[in-house]
Design a protein around this nucleic acid. Structure first.
Lengths: 102, 102
DNA sequence: CCATTTCATCGCTATATTGCGATTCAATAC
DNA sequence: GTATTGAATCGCAATATAGCGATGAAATGG
């Protein structure tokens, strides 16, 4: 318990849920918006923009990375994040389809 | 801590996050799909369709109701759930806009 | 009245999430 | 080499979530 019984649901339902879950926090929404806006990647400028500590922002970035919605590339001392275009488009179509029902 | 600092984010970011959070579980995805498919409302047939106990399904329905994505109407002994069309469309446009970035 | 059915809620356990400060590690700067 | 900077991770506390069985409350059936 406390654990989602993923095995019991369809792949698609799990995919939709996983994406939605990753987006389900205002900080992560804000991060994704920033990354979309800047098109090119950014790094820890995100920390400056967000009203959260560095460690907390790092956690959210990790969550988004685990959902494959973003990519992080090391550039010397910095890490450059950007939207994972492929997965983003997949997510877009999954969610669009989902909400187009009815 | 353990609590999202919603105050620190924009209304829109919070709205997007709240909807995504509600959708962020495969059981709730499955419920919403069913309700969309049956167009007309259903009741505890949902429990039969889902691989979860009645109490757990009830919890998920509560979560969806709190996100205003669904409506529940008492009909004698039964409760009839259906998608909240207005909010659903709002959610659709919010999420579509969100994913249309970039 | 009592029994049954339908659903919500309580009470509990297990696990996950959010947040932060402190620490660590790698890369640069000196 | 040491110092500094950027970012991930650790460790912790507070809270939230997922799941279930049991109990409750309202409506129907007798």
């Amino acid at each position: 318990m406390g654990t989602t019984k993923k095995e019991l649901f369809s792949l698609e339902d799990n995919q939709v849920a996983a994406i939605a879950k990753a987006v389900g926090h205002p900080a992560r929404v804000a991060i994704l918006k920033q990354l979309a806006r800047l098109d090119a990647c950014v790094c820890g400028d995100l920390v400056d923009v967000l009203p959260l500590s560095q460690s907390t922002v790092s956690q959210h970035l990790k969550a988004l990375k685990e959902a494959h919605l973003i990519l992080g590339e090391v550039e010397g001392k910095n890490v450059c994040y950007c939207i994972n275009k492929e997965v983003w488009e997949k997510a877009q179509s999954l969610l669009t389809d989902f909400f187009s029902r009815r």
